[in-house]
Each structure stands twice: as structure tokens, then as C-alpha cells.
């Protein structure tokens, strides 16, 4: 009997209580539509240091980049620790849609004209749809416009060409930390000796850590697999560390790298600079974004 009474009492009490402090916010959670939350801004700009990041221009945005690498620090006072020399890369990069970026540029390194496309395939997301990584496909082609090494032999235009294919697999772990893996295939139509491979495989790993809202620390390394080694050249895997500083529409990237190159062929396939020997280059990238429409 008493138990029954207490149950009734409890019921009445619960009814009353339900009225008194209803938590509407909890109720909102149950009615609000499930949403997909896309991750954005894994990196501050379209490059981690020299290599392409998962970021690309949004529809109607145009990026103008000025990239610069000085000579190596070990050139001493005679080369003013590298500042006497400079290698430059200028490029324009445009977002046709949010998932397609096209770019064109020229670097003084081998006087190469460079064109590329970056195509977004997957976007990291959580909520209704859970995708752990963002994925983009990157392809570029370079034309070496220098005069021929050996004008006497029969030279073909195709010998000037080199191609790069990359998968950019990035994950933004939290607000501060992002990591990217970059499997890379570089194809050189013409290689210096018969011992060299035309196809070079590499795996890049790059990351950033945000120190403040507008400053991040970046690092980038490419492991280059070379089945046969060219005897004359000691190729070295590129390792770069950099700092991104963002000021509104500009992003400044300042870096130290053992590589002079700014396009994939140059900094991955052709790099001979070594950190241990002091072939360290100071460099910077300046990115300016214009919203065209």
C-alpha cells in the first residue's frame, strides 16, 4: 500500500517538476536537424613550406604569390651567407570553384614555366557525415625554357617537360595541429644520364602547429625513393622548417630549407643541398589573396 502511494506521489511530483524547470536547450538538441560540419583551414595558405597544402583558393579568389630562396648559408662572407644569390618563383593561383584551383607561374630555377591543377576530392567532416581526412589530387607540368645543353644533338620539345602527381591527404586534428601526407610521383621526360630514373616516387609529410591565432610553425619533409642513384649527384631529401604569419589578406612564410626549389621537380627530385654541410637556404613566400567576385 505504502509503496503504491509513494509511486503515485512520485508520479505527481515528476509531473510538477517537468513543468517547473524545463530545459529547452536539451530539447533543441533533439529537434535540430543533423548537420555536417566541415573542417576548414587545416593550413594557413596553399603551401606548407614549399610543397602544396590541402588548402586551395575558394571560388572567385585569386592568389598572387612571390616566393624567394636565397643562396646557401655556407657560402660565407664572400656570398654574404647566401643573400647575394636569389631564386624566385612568381605565381597566380585561382579558384574556379571551391574544389578546383588552377595556377600558373614561373621560376628562375631552370627558367621553368609551371602550370598546375588542384582538385578537391574529399573534405574532412564530422557530425552527420564523418570523414577523417581531406583529400585532393594535385597535378603539375613544368617547361624548362633554357637553351639546350647540347644544341648539336637532335633536341625535342618534349625533353623540356616534367610532370608531378600528388595526393594530398590532410587531417586537422584540432584547432592547432594539422598533418598532411603527400605521396608523390614525378616524371622527368629527360634525365641527365642513362642511370637516372624517369619516374621518381616520394612520400612527403608536413605539419603545422598554431602558436597564436595568426602565427604557426610548419615543417615539411619528403622521403625520396631512388632505386638507382646517380653517381655524380648526391641527392638529398628536402627538409624545411618555416613560420607562417598571417595579416588579413596576406600570409608571410619565412623558412629555412636545404632545398632551393619552389616547384615539385626542383625541391623533391633535384635537391642536392644538405643540412649537415650547411647548404641551408633562407627563404620567404608572400601570399596575397584578392577576392574577384
Amino acid at each position: 500500500m505504502k509503496i503504491l502511494f509513494s509511486i503515485i506521489f512520485l508520479f505527481l511530483l515528476l509531473n510538477l517538476k517537468g513543468r517547473a524547470d524545463e530545459n529547452l536547450l536539451d530539447e533543441l538538441d533533439s529537434i535540430s536537424e543533423p548537420k555536417v560540419e566541415y573542417e576548414t583551414s587545416a593550413f594557413k595558405t596553399t603551401r606548407i613550406v614549399s610543397g602544396h597544402s590541402i588548402q586551395s583558393m575558394k571560388e572567385g579568389e585569386l592568389e598572387f604569390r612571390i616566393s624567394h630562396r636565397f643562396g646557401s648559408v655556407n657560402s660565407g662572407v664572400d656570398g654574404f651567407w647566401g643573400l647575394d644569390q636569389s631564386t624566385i618563383f612568381l605565381s597566380l593561383e585561382y579558384g574556379i570553384t571551391d574544389w578546383l584551383e588552377l595556377g600558373i607561374g614561373r621560376t628562375s630555377n631552370e627558367k621553368t614555366v609551371h602550370g598546375f591543377a588542384k582538385i578537391g576530392l574529399l573534405k574532412q567532416s564530422k557530425g552527420e557525415v564523418n570523414i577523417p581526412v581531406s583529400l585532393s589530387y594535385f597535378a603539375s607540368a613544368g617547361i624548362n625554357t633554357m637553351s639546350w645543353n647540347d644544341p648539336k644533338r637532335e633536341n625535342f620539345f618534349t625533353s623540356r617537360l616534367s610532370f608531378t602527381h600528388q595526393l594530398l591527404i590532410a587531417r586537422k586534428f584540432n584547432e592547432y595541429f594539422s598533418l598532411q601526407l603527400t605521396p608523390t610521383l614525378i616524371h622527368l621526360n629527360l634525365v641527365p644520364t642513362a642511370l637516372d630514373d624517369n619516374d621518381i616516387f616520394a612520400l612527403g609529410i608536413g605539419g603545422r602547429y598554431k602558436i597564436t591565432n595568426r602565427v604557426s610553425l610548419n615543417m615539411e619533409y619528403f622521403y625520396v625513393a631512388r632505386p638507382t642513384w646517380n653517381i655524380e649527384n648526391d641527392f638529398v631529401n628536402p627538409l624545411s622548417i618555416g613560420v607562417d604569419i598571417e595579416t588579413g589578406g596576406h600570409v608571410f612564410q619565412i623558412m629555412l630549407s636545404n632545398s632551393l626549389g619552389m616547384i615539385e621537380k626542383h625541391y623533391i627530385a633535384d635537391n642536392t643541398g644538405s643540412w649537415s654541410k650547411g647548404d641551408i637556404h633562407l627563404g620567404f613566400n608572400i601570399s596575397r589573396v584578392f577576392t574577384l567576385y
Partner: peptide
């Protein structure tokens, strides 16, 4: 445009809930 909200016209209780990422700007930057 994806704000979830509820109002109780008897008690006057009112609540709003929105995702900051759902704010859309003209400029992506």
C-alpha cells in the same frame, strides 16, 4: 539560416542554438 530555436508561449521560456560555422560571408577569406 540554420538556427534552431524553441519558445514556450505559456512559461515564456525561449532558447536558441546555432553553429558558428554556419555563418556564411560574402568573402571566403
Amino acid at each position: 539560416n540554420q538556427v534552431a530555436t524553441i519558445i514556450n508561449i505559456k512559461t515564456g521560456a525561449i532558447a536558441f542554438d546555432l553553429l558558428m560555422k554556419s555563418f556564411k560571408f560574402k568573402k571566403a577569406l
